[in-house]
Nucleic acid binder design. Structure first.
Lengths: 212, 212
DNA sequence: CAGTATGGATAGTGGTGCTCTCCACTATTG
DNA sequence: CAATAGTGGAGAGCACCACTATCCATACTG
């Protein structure tokens, strides 16, 4: 398969594919001569994955490159990917109030301790969670109740996520499933949550099912 | 309070505040003379909210403006906000394969029907959910099981979300809580989910709690 | 053998979220 | 009562990011 066919199959313009090749999001095709290369199904798959991580996951190119590099490691391990690469896909920000952030960190540490979660201490996810907790405080919202209930529910979500990962055949498939499930799962959960919120709100504040 | 104090209190640079004023993210201060204005606590609150929606929620300026405009409507109604304004905060994309997208839409319609969710038919959240379902299909992942379990769990999440909204004192507070809870809630859930995934993975694939 | 496609490289583009500069004017300080 | 600093407002400029366009020597295609 040459680049034009790869482009047609995936719907990604040829210049964009070239750009991804330059950026290391896509491995180079097998060179048959100095300026001819062949691409195969793996390139199609990878390209689709990149597009989905970009469009749905809204991950920056650099993050996607790191994630794919992790997937392509010689000794790929699902737990490693879940523990090291995927945490980089949650955003961080520089919070204004250091004291508030430290309090939020302490709150997250407490949560992790009480739940007995086996989460590495330097985990970026802790940082991210603390930042969100601090953000709630900064806009004057009390996140306390939400935090406990959310923790309950994400535990169950994670069980299904890991089941989703485990069901994939080989190790490579599991890595793929871990990435896809985590990134797309966020978006799926967000969309479903909005619908469930609308439904719950309809039940709560007078039902207007005129267009449902 | 003048602009310098507003800037110091919130940590937002003065030129950025001026930019937000131009963009309509922040209402103008009360003019005391042609080139002097006074700002108050409401500006501080609003500015913090804007920063949090930008930094944590990663919403575009235009979306934030629309959201805040909705909050400032004369007859603010929580269900309206949850049903109209907040759905705009989930992304959309132009999918390559129309047939796949239509199948995904049908799947989402079925889900909504089976759950009896009262969700408006044209809802943007449906579009978004369908896009994610199509994305799963596009990368060759079977979302079927995940979908049912996620639907179960977001129903419970939404119950807590609405409780979070209801607990806020007045109507204005509830609108604020709905926005904050929805947007920041997404990020909080994502961060907690990553931690729960790491924990679940640690339990599943050999426990290495050396640094937990 | 004419015309199109290719890999590779470099430069340019459009959108976004600021940031800088300027201006006439106002407030504050010594 | 200066001198200095700060202000609202408006326009231009900037940095980053994800592309997109152009060019070239070479290779495939009809």
């Amino acid at each position: 398969m040459r680049i034009a066919e790869l482009s047609q199959t995936t719907g990604v313009p040829v210049p964009t594919i070239k750009y991804y090749l330059r950026e290391g999001l896509l491995p180079a095709g097998e060179l048959t001569s100095p300026n001819q290369a062949r691409y195969d199904d793996r390139h199609v798959q990878r390209l689709r994955l990149v597009r989905v991580l970009l469009d749905i996951g809204r991950l920056p190119i650099a993050t996607i490159r790191d994630l794919l590099t992790e997937l392509d490691r010689p000794d790929p391990d699902v737990h490693e990917v879940l523990g090291r690469a995927l945490p980089a896909t949650v955003g961080t920000r520089e919070t204004s109030d250091p004291a508030m952030l430290e309090a939020a960190h302490e709150r997250v540490r407490l949560l992790v301790r009480q739940r007995g979660w086996l989460v590495s201490d330097n985990a970026r996810t802790r940082q991210s969670a603390a930042e969100v907790v601090a953000a709630f405080a900064q806009v004057g919202a009390d996140v306390e109740h939400l935090l406990e209930h959310y923790a309950d529910l994400v535990e169950r979500i994670a069980v299904h996520d890991l089941r989703f990962v485990a069901q994939a055949g080989d190790n490579e498939g599991r890595l793929h499933a871990a990435v896809v499930g985590s990134i797309l799962g966020d978006s799926l959960l967000a969309a479903l949550r909005r619908m469930a919120q609308e439904h719950e709100s309809a039940k709560m504040f007078g039902i207007r099912d005129d267009n449902c």
